[in-house]
Simulated assay, not measured.
Amino acid sequence: MPAEGAAPHGSATSVLTLADIGFAAPRALLARHGLVLVEVAAGEPIPGSYWGDSEAGVIAHEVYARVDTPVHSLLHEACHLMVAPAERRASIHTDASDSQAEEDATCYLQILLADTLAGVGRERLMADMDAWGYSFRLGSTRAWFEHDADDAREWLAARGLLPPAD
């Protein structure tokens, strides 16, 4: 989660983008969760993007992205929709965050789901999250995930949102 008032720090060349992994695997992942990945033409504005530029956007059950969209951004916005109750999901447009607990759960879930995408994985995703400017109390995404995210994991578990363990 970016620091309050912060803008994205990363650039398309420093983090993994959809140009690197393609749309097929992310599209299939989102479909398993009842979401639709909508590919936006290069250079066009991304509907529902909170941060603008190449960052993914959300509107109801659709996630919008371009080839230059960072994978961490796509997963983050998609996970916001995954954790949102069905009755709220339909009204989400651009700003999907409901609470700090939900934001933390979103970050945790995006890290877990990175392991399901070939060429991504949690290690790369956490590095990209740090490069972009996510801000955690312990200083890095990895430190938060490994030592300070029990509440996020419990939040997801209580709602049946944890993916099956390998």
Rank of each mutant, 00 (worst) to 15 (best):
D104Q: 08
L16R: 05
D104L: 12
A143K: 03
P26D: 03
D98Y: 05
A24Q: 06
C107V: 15
R89Q: 10
V38W: 05
T106I: 07
D115S: 12
A31M: 09
D130E: 11
R122D: 06
S99G: 14
P26M: 08
P70R: 01
A105V: 01
D68V: 01
M126V: 01
G119H: 01
W144N: 02
Y134C: 00
V38Q: 07
V71Q: 11
E55Y: 14
H72S: 07
L29K: 04
E103G: 15
L30V: 07
P2Y: 09
G119T: 09
H61I: 04
V67Q: 11
A12L: 02
Q100G: 08
L125A: 01
P163E: 03
R159N: 11
S49A: 10
R142V: 11
V63I: 10
A28F: 04
M129F: 00
G57M: 07
L109P: 09
G48C: 05
E103S: 14
F145T: 06
T13R: 07
E55N: 11
E103Q: 11
L29S: 11
V38G: 02
A143P: 01
D166P: 15
A158Q: 14
T116L: 11
L156F: 05
Y108A: 15
A7C: 06
P85W: 08
D151T: 06
R88M: 14
A114Q: 03
G34S: 02
A96Q: 01
G10P: 12
A3E: 12
P70Q: 02
T13C: 08
E62R: 12
S135C: 07
A12P: 02
V38S: 11
G22T: 05
L125W: 05
A131L: 10
M126H: 14
V71F: 00
L81T: 09
V120R: 00
S73W: 00
A152D: 13
S14V: 11
A28M: 09
L138M: 11
R159M: 12
A165D: 12
V15A: 12
V120L: 14
H33D: 09
G22C: 01
R142L: 12
W51S: 04
Y64K: 00
L30A: 00
S97A: 13
R137T: 05
A41E: 15
V58E: 01
